[in-house]
């Protein structure tokens, strides 16, 4: 564990807490893409298959449980909770995310560390996480103005993987034989997808104005 990875995990945890706060406090999920939440639930379920088989540390196990639990709880809330699901704008959240799942699965069968179920699922979860934010970003551009909590949620979600890139650079130079090309390249693509969001987020923060994404 290094400071970059710990900072990344904490930033990721904050993004989840901000989303839970928004849904719990406002009893609304307006501006949140259910499809991105479903993709993230699939990312965690396919990545943490080894949750009970190989124990790494209490921290690792706890965080995996938190990410799996919170992503499933958010999907459940947006689909089942009477008040929350009413605020879900399904006619705006129209990204064909099943194509993302299919494309990532095919890529994972072709490019992986080993052709085993666990490694193919791991690579699938890495590729899927890289593109999971797309439905959310498309929804934000369609819905124009972004409420603060939603903006903060997306910001922290994007920032966490940037910390992980620093972590991979750090580990590459400090540990022998450490290579995570699949995770690193996917992580760079993932962070790059947030580039324009980060730009408009910074502008809105600098001008102390509402976050506006160009349509």
């Amino acid at each position: 564990m290094n400071i970059f990875r710990f900072a990344g995990d904490m930033t990721h945890l904050i993004s989840v807490l901000v989303l839970l706060l928004k849904i719990y406090a406002t009893k609304s999920c307006s501006g949140i893409s259910l499809k991105t939440q479903e993709l993230y639930a699939l990312v965690f379920l396919s990545r943490y298959l080894d949750l009970f088989t190989n124990y790494i540390s209490l921290y690792n196990t706890l965080m995996k449980l938190v990410f799996i639990g919170s992503s499933l709880a958010i999907v459940w809330c947006m689909r089942m909770h009477h008040a929350v699901k009413r605020s879900y704008d399904k006619e705006v959240d129209t990204f064909r995310h099943y194509y993302l799942v299919l494309a990532c699965f095919v890529l994972a069968t072709l490019v992986n560390e080993q052709f085993t179920l666990r490694e193919v699922c791991w690579a699938f979860s890495i590729y899927l996480e890289a593109v999971a934010i797309l439905p959310q970003l498309v929804l934000l551009q369609r819905s124009g103005n972004v409420d603060n909590l939603t903006g903060q949620y997306v910001f922290f979600l994007g920032a966490y993987r940037a910390f992980y890139i620093l972590n991979w650079i750090y580990r590459y130079f400090t540990e022998q034989y450490f290579t995570r090309w699949i995770a690193c390249i996917a992580g760079i693509v993932q962070t790059a997808l947030y580039a324009d969001f980060f730009y408009y987020y910074f502008i809105s923060w600098k001008n102390n104005a509402k976050l506006q994404l160009p349509a």
Binding site: R5, D9, H12, R47, D50, N54, I56, N60, M63, K64, F67, E113, Q114, E119, W122, Y164, N167, R180, A183
Partner: peptide
């Protein structure tokens, strides 16, 4: 043999 890549990251 190739050690199974231990995925120690989240």
């Amino acid at each position: 043999g190739t050690e199974a890549t231990m995925h120690d990251e989240l």
